[in-house]
Design a protein around this nucleic acid. Sequence first.
DNA 1: GTCTATATAAAGATAGAC
DNA 2: GTCTATCTTTATATAGAC
Lengths: 209, 209
Amino acid sequence: MKHFSDLSPTAERIVDIAERLIQQRGFNGFSYEDIAGEIGIRKPSIHHHFASKESLALTVAQRYTDRLKQKLLAIEESQSSSPAQLAGYVELFDETYTEERRMCTFGMLGAECGTLSESIRFEIGRFFAVNLAWLAEVFGRGRIAGELSFSVSDKDQALIFLSALEGAMVVGKGMETASCPKQVGQAMIASLSAAASNAVASQPLTGSD
Amino acid sequence: MKHFSDLSPTAERIVDIAERLIQQRGFNGFSYEDIAGEIGIRKPSIHHHFASKESLALTVAQRYTDRLKQKLLAIEESQSSSPAQLAGYVELFDETYTEERRMCTFGMLGAECGTLSESIRFEIGRFFAVNLAWLAEVFGRGRIAGELSFSVSDKDQALIFLSALEGAMVVGKGMETASCPKQVGQAMIASLSAAASNAVASQPLTGSD
DNA sequence: GTCTATATAAAGATAGAC
DNA sequence: GTCTATCTTTATATAGAC
């Protein structure tokens, strides 16, 4: 298919359910039968829409990244300050987690990537790269504007931020906590902002490359 | 069994292999056949040592936490400063990741916990609790000694630190990066230490509870 | 697009011999 | 402790009718 708007209503339902199952149980933790049972049709009907489980997961993955990009643009348009943009970003993780304690689709797939095909591994790398590039930009702007202060490169700060949110979902699920990504995200933003108010010279030690 | 030293040589090999498979492929990503093939015995022989896959995973989990506790004690004994203790802690994650790009056993199980039994979920919660308690102590001592500076509670800082390292393994695997947990860990320690050198007043905003 | 029927393989597990 | 044989269930997938 060219794009996700080309998906038939049933295909879209399948993708919706598969996405949720990947987030809650992992790629190796659900089957076509689970999806069929939920929709009320039979397994072969799922195969009619997605010949293989891998192609289904690939569609889930591509749509997820596509939607993320849209949400990042929406954050940039609605929020002008860097701390507010970060808060919007944290909210994306929190919404996902709060909704039936789902993991980030790519947090789950990243953990499982030792069992996944090359085409899906490619999508995993692409998703994280999109996140890191966007975060590094936000951290760069925030640092220059004096809204955020940190002593590592923009790229390292982006990696810390993304990792902490992905990890917060894992730790939160493992500890059966209600709001882990939000707690971690807000604490990090508080740290970065508090440092900016105190800081005399908030130059990064290692540049912004 | 009372303790892990009671494991027969074959049982121990089984646990070793199961641990590695959980870390690399997840609980739902391997089978008794994988273990049997690697050891050179048959599936029923694995069942002789561990009647169910779940009981095997439980032993893997309990041994993993047991060993972690020992390693934390070793770090406390060999390192006196808080930044050095954190560096030792980061090294634990880095060693695991560097060894064939393994995940933390509980990072993987935490992500998959929607498919796991109550007894394993209990172990997941226990593991993270042990980590958070140890880290919060280290952060508290480091803050009081003026070696570390951060503007959230000791507990929140511990949660950020653990989450970031767990997440770094996920992101690192997903991006096929060589050294993600080390990079994230060292960057965080640098941040916390650099802040301590600059800080005028490094009181936590929200107390140390 | 959906169904029944079926193929094929793998999974977790047990019985009982050696 | 290990084996062969077997059970039972599930998974992914295909063929072909409606």
